[in-house]
Lab assay of single mutants.
Amino acid sequence: MQIFVKTLTGKTITSEVEPSDTIENVKAKIQDKEGIPPDQQRLIFAGKQLEDGRTLSDYNIQKESTLHLVLR
């Protein structure tokens, strides 16, 4: 499924993921596309910071959901 990751600069990254993918996994995909190390990434969805060990389905993230990427 496709999800969108919006950066603070307003850029939107499209990523191909599975509901069973972990947040860590998603951060790795963002690193592949943007070159941002996962340890600098914080992903936010519905006002919550997403934890690395959890999966997209844990957070009820569905296709075409938009996550927000904040850098630390």
Rank of each mutant, 00 (worst) to 15 (best):
M1E: 03
M1I: 11
M1A: 03
M1C: 04
Q2A: 09
Q2K: 14
Q2H: 11
Q2S: 10
Q2E: 09
I3K: 00
I3W: 00
I3V: 06
I3P: 01
I3C: 02
F4C: 04
F4D: 02
F4A: 04
F4N: 05
F4L: 06
F4V: 06
V5E: 01
V5H: 00
V5G: 00
V5M: 04
K6Y: 08
K6R: 11
K6E: 07
K6A: 07
T7H: 06
T7Y: 14
T7S: 07
T7W: 14
T7A: 05
L8N: 12
L8T: 13
L8H: 14
L8M: 13
T9W: 15
T9F: 13
T9N: 13
T9A: 12
T9Q: 13
T9S: 13
G10L: 03
G10N: 05
G10W: 03
G10C: 05
K11P: 04
K11T: 08
K11W: 11
K11L: 09
K11E: 08
K11C: 07
K11A: 08
T12M: 12
T12P: 02
T12S: 06
I13R: 00
I13V: 06
I13N: 02
I13P: 02
T14Q: 08
T14I: 14
T14D: 04
T14C: 09
S15R: 06
S15K: 05
S15I: 15
S15G: 06
E16R: 10
E16M: 13
E16W: 15
E16H: 11
E16I: 14
V17R: 00
V17F: 12
V17A: 06
V17Y: 06
V17M: 05
E18P: 03
E18S: 14
P19A: 08
P19K: 07
P19F: 07
P19R: 06
P19L: 10
P19I: 08
P19S: 09
S20E: 09
S20A: 08
S20D: 11
S20R: 08
S20L: 09
S20K: 07
D21C: 05
D21G: 03
D21T: 10
D21A: 06
T22W: 05
T22E: 02
T22R: 08
T22G: 03
T22K: 08
T22H: 04
T22V: 04
T22F: 08
I23H: 01
I23C: 03
I23S: 02
I23D: 02
I23Q: 01
E24G: 12
E24P: 01
E24A: 15
E24W: 15
E24R: 14
N25Q: 14
N25I: 14
N25E: 12
V26K: 00
V26M: 05
K27F: 07
K27R: 05
K27D: 01
A28Y: 12
A28E: 09
K29W: 13
K29T: 07
K29P: 01
K29M: 13
K29E: 04
I30H: 02
I30S: 02
I30K: 00
Q31P: 03
Q31A: 14
Q31W: 15
Q31G: 11
D32K: 13
D32G: 09
D32N: 11
D32E: 13
D32C: 08
D32V: 12
K33H: 09
K33V: 12
K33Y: 08
K33S: 14
E34M: 15
E34I: 15
E34L: 15
E34D: 05
E34R: 05
E34V: 15
G35F: 04
G35A: 05
G35E: 04
G35P: 03
G35T: 03
G35L: 04
G35H: 07
I36F: 11
I36A: 04
I36K: 03
I36M: 05
P37E: 08
P37A: 10
P37Y: 05
P37N: 08
P38I: 15
P38S: 14
P38R: 14
P38L: 15
P38H: 12
D39E: 12
D39V: 08
D39Q: 11
D39K: 10
D39T: 10
Q40D: 10
Q40R: 11
Q40H: 11
Q40Y: 08
Q41M: 15
Q41L: 12
Q41Y: 15
Q41D: 02
Q41I: 14
Q41N: 03
R42Y: 13
R42S: 12
R42M: 15
R42K: 13
R42I: 15
R42W: 13
R42A: 11
R42G: 08
R42H: 13
L43I: 06
L43R: 00
I44E: 10
I44F: 15
I44L: 12
I44Y: 15
I44W: 15
F45Q: 02
F45E: 01
F45G: 01
F45W: 09
F45I: 03
A46Y: 09
A46K: 14
A46W: 08
A46H: 13
A46R: 14
A46G: 12
A46I: 06
G47Q: 04
G47W: 05
K48P: 01
K48I: 14
K48W: 08
K48Q: 14
K48F: 11
Q49M: 13
Q49H: 11
Q49N: 11
Q49W: 14
Q49Y: 14
Q49R: 09
L50F: 01
L50E: 02
L50A: 00
L50K: 00
L50P: 00
L50N: 01
E51W: 06
E51C: 08
E51V: 07
D52N: 10
D52I: 04
D52G: 05
D52A: 05
D52E: 09
G53L: 07
G53F: 11
G53W: 14
G53V: 07
R54A: 08
R54N: 09
R54F: 11
R54D: 04
T55A: 05
T55K: 10
T55Q: 08
T55H: 05
T55R: 10
L56W: 03
L56R: 00
L56K: 00
L56E: 00
S57F: 09
S57R: 12
S57M: 11
S57H: 10
S57K: 12
S57P: 02
D58V: 03
D58T: 04
D58F: 14
D58K: 02
D58M: 05
Y59M: 03
Y59F: 03
Y59P: 01
Y59N: 01
Y59K: 00
Y59R: 01
N60I: 03
N60S: 08
N60V: 03
N60R: 07
I61E: 02
I61S: 01
I61A: 02
I61Q: 01
I61V: 09
I61N: 00
I61C: 00
I61D: 01
I61H: 00
Q62L: 10
Q62K: 12
Q62A: 09
K63S: 15
K63T: 13
K63A: 15
K63F: 08
K63P: 15
K63Y: 07
K63I: 06
E64R: 07
E64Q: 10
S65P: 02
S65R: 02
S65V: 06
T66V: 14
T66P: 02
T66I: 13
T66M: 11
T66A: 04
T66L: 10
L67V: 08
L67N: 00
L67C: 15
L67E: 00
L67T: 00
L67K: 00
L67Y: 00
H68L: 15
H68I: 15
H68A: 05
H68Q: 11
H68T: 13
H68K: 07
H68R: 08
L69P: 00
L69H: 01
L69R: 00
L69K: 00
L69I: 05
L69E: 01
V70F: 13
V70S: 07
V70N: 05
V70M: 10
L71W: 09
L71N: 08
L71A: 07
R72E: 12
R72C: 11
R72Y: 12
